[in-house]
Amino acid sequence: MFDLAKYTKELSELFESYENILLVSHINPDGDAIGSQLALYQFLTYKGKKVEMMCPNNLQEFLKWMHGADKIKIFIRNRKKCIKLIGDADLIILIDFNQASRLGESEKYVIDSKATKVIIDHHLEPHDIANLLISDPSRCSTSELVYEMIAIINGEPFKNRSFSEAVYVGIITDTGNFEHGSYSGRTLRIIADLLDSGIEKEKILNVVYNNFSVDRMRLLGFALNKRMTVLSEYKTAYIYLTKKDLSDFSHVKGDTEGFVNLPLSINGISFAVLLVEKDNFVKLSFRSKGNFAVNEFASKYFYGGGHLNASGGEYYDTLENTIKYFMKVLEENKMQLENSF
């Protein structure tokens, strides 16, 4: 059983022992990665610590409004600066991931660093890459875990608007605004505290969910109309997008966010997949309802992982061959899918 008090005490002692702290989020960061990273940053800077933040690649547009986001150094845009930050750090906190490959091009530098390393995460199957692993998959998000740990360290919930906004974004994005994920009454009590602290819920929801371009809306319509296949016999629907599709609709990073969830609203569908063609591989996102474990599916067939009902993976072949392979492994899982929901 996860011992929150024990791990919080160990983390607090590390915060007291080190001055140069580097907070690192994962490649292709989502709202929970950036939310939990910024929440930790707000608390540690309030406590007078010297804190830097780094991310392997660019943030999505809907996350850049949060206070402190402009202070996150992007490795692929400023390698020299980021390598120095890694070298200068005596404590590195790896946030919302548990595998070295999620560090992207910064992997070698972070892993080779002599700094003490801590993982704060909520994903399954962590790799042995840190001195201290703080991981609880029962939490709906890393942001929820960060909120609880900071409240214990602080002696009471930390009252700071930017901190609260960051935690809120982390929780709502990792649960699809409470449409999926392992959120609980504990999660909702935290949300109540955040709302009581004075955050502007409607403003945040509009920035995160209602701030799309015309091209993105047209890409969504095209994806549902021309690129979605429904396989009722497998309780499955998948959407695929080619590089040309993305180009035709002036795709920018983050435009396909949420597409994979939409087929689950079809009656009788309990497994949804989004396949996006990249330069040398295909990126896949998986969502499910019920007990079909998409994290196990992703790990077994597509070099991926994640949560029971939300995960991702990759396949290093053409889009056409990836779809053929997907259909093959789908047949292997037909019985599980029939009994999944």
Rank of each mutant, 00 (worst) to 15 (best):
S213R: 15
I204T: 07
V207T: 11
T187P: 00
S182R: 08
V208S: 01
Y147N: 14
E144P: 04
R186N: 06
N177W: 13
I172K: 01
E156K: 15
S143F: 00
I199D: 00
P137A: 05
D215Q: 12
S143A: 15
P157F: 09
E148M: 13
S164A: 14
R218N: 15
K203H: 09
I172E: 01
G155M: 11
Y209M: 02
L188G: 03
N177I: 14
V169K: 05
R189W: 06
I153M: 14
M217G: 06
I190M: 02
A166V: 00
I171A: 04
K201D: 04
C140R: 14
Y168H: 08
V167A: 02
V169D: 05
L194E: 03
E144G: 02
Y168Q: 11
T142A: 13
I199T: 01
D193W: 03
K159N: 13
F212R: 12
R218Q: 15
E148C: 11
E165I: 13
S143Y: 04
R216L: 11
C140M: 07
R139H: 10
A151M: 09
E179W: 05
T175L: 08
S197L: 00
I204A: 06
I152C: 07
G181D: 05
S141E: 04
D136P: 09
I152P: 00
R218P: 10
R216I: 14
V207N: 02
N154P: 06
V208L: 00
G185F: 03
D215L: 08
S138H: 11
L145F: 12
A166E: 03
F178M: 07
C140K: 10
D174S: 12
I153E: 04
P137I: 07
T175Q: 10
V167W: 00
R139N: 12
N160F: 12
F158W: 09
F212G: 04
Y168S: 13
F163V: 12
V169N: 11
E165F: 10
C140Q: 13
D193T: 05
N177Q: 14
S182A: 07
G170H: 04
V207G: 02
K159D: 12
G181A: 04
Y168R: 04
N206G: 06
S182N: 08
G176N: 06
V207S: 09
E156A: 14
S138L: 11
Y168A: 11
S141P: 12
I150P: 11
D215R: 09
A166Q: 01
T187N: 06
T175A: 08
I171M: 12
T173W: 11
S143I: 13
I172N: 00
F163G: 05
K159P: 09
S138Q: 12
S162C: 08
V207M: 11
V208Y: 01
S138T: 15
E165T: 10
N211Y: 09
G170M: 10
S213F: 13
I153G: 10
Y147L: 12
S164R: 07
E200H: 04
I191A: 02
H180V: 03
C140V: 14
V167K: 00
T173M: 06
M217S: 15
Y183G: 08
L219E: 01
E156M: 14
E202T: 07
E148A: 03
M217V: 14
